[in-house]
Design a protein around this nucleic acid. Sequence first.
DNA 1: CATTTATATACGCCTTGACGTATATGTATG
DNA 2: CATACATATACGTCAAGGCGTATATAAATG
Lengths: 127, 127
Amino acid sequence: MSEIATLFAALADPTRLRLLYLVKDGEICVCFLQGVLQTNQPKISRHLAYLKRAGLVAARKEGKWMHYCLKRQPADSQKLLQQAFDSLARAPQIRSDVQRLKNIRCCPSRYGISDPLRPGTGKCKAA
Amino acid sequence: MSEIATLFAALADPTRLRLLYLVKDGEICVCFLQGVLQTNQPKISRHLAYLKRAGLVAARKEGKWMHYCLKRQPADSQKLLQQAFDSLARAPQIRSDVQRLKNIRCCPSRYGISDPLRPGTGKCKAA
DNA sequence: CATTTATATACGCCTTGACGTATATGTATG
DNA sequence: CATACATATACGTCAAGGCGTATATAAATG
């Protein structure tokens, strides 16, 4: 009951919705997420921490990098999430996020936030 | 996008989830809702006001009474809500709410919050 | 081993919203 | 018309959480 409410609370923020959508199909490292969302890094990390606390994402460390991915949920939550993703898929912001993710090839720090679309050198393991 | 987040925010509270579930199939007056949730009246009214602001419920005045019901939503939100209701249907609290709603017959003030299950006199128009 | 890189956390500030209690508002009723 | 009733709103308080900025931590790298 209040677990359901807690799930909805986790979904009640645009930044978290964007992050969840990006990691829903597999691991993405924080630097990629930063490049896609085009915002400051602590903001990303804080929302990822929130999602992790809420049990929605799993984190895996690999060297310097942290990789996040959607955690498998109980059936009910899974269905709710899927429905949410279906809705989000049509949102312009989400569409451009997905597009940017395709273009990013390496860590944003290599080229700064000013031009997050520039393809990188492929050094980032998450590529 | 942030509209979706706003919807989730409205669903991120147990009391609002209970209220939404109760009014999802038709008009219910505030006194009934108070009897079912067994809490103080301002709390109910405040959450109903929130839901109304969020466009999730409609209100109709009839004499002294206010009747609330779920408002028809755009397709996406409708699906999300349906999924949410499916999940809620299995929650114990929701189950007992539904049970109490069946038993309540008139306005709680007639018998006080101490025994909200006692059938009323049928004077309440919402019966 | 000093420095850069990737990420997380601490801090201070501010807004939102939840709560209980008290009060206002409108409507019926005797 | 005074009173009871149904509902809403105001008030004060409190906790959660959002933000940007600064700093800590840990791993790689030269």
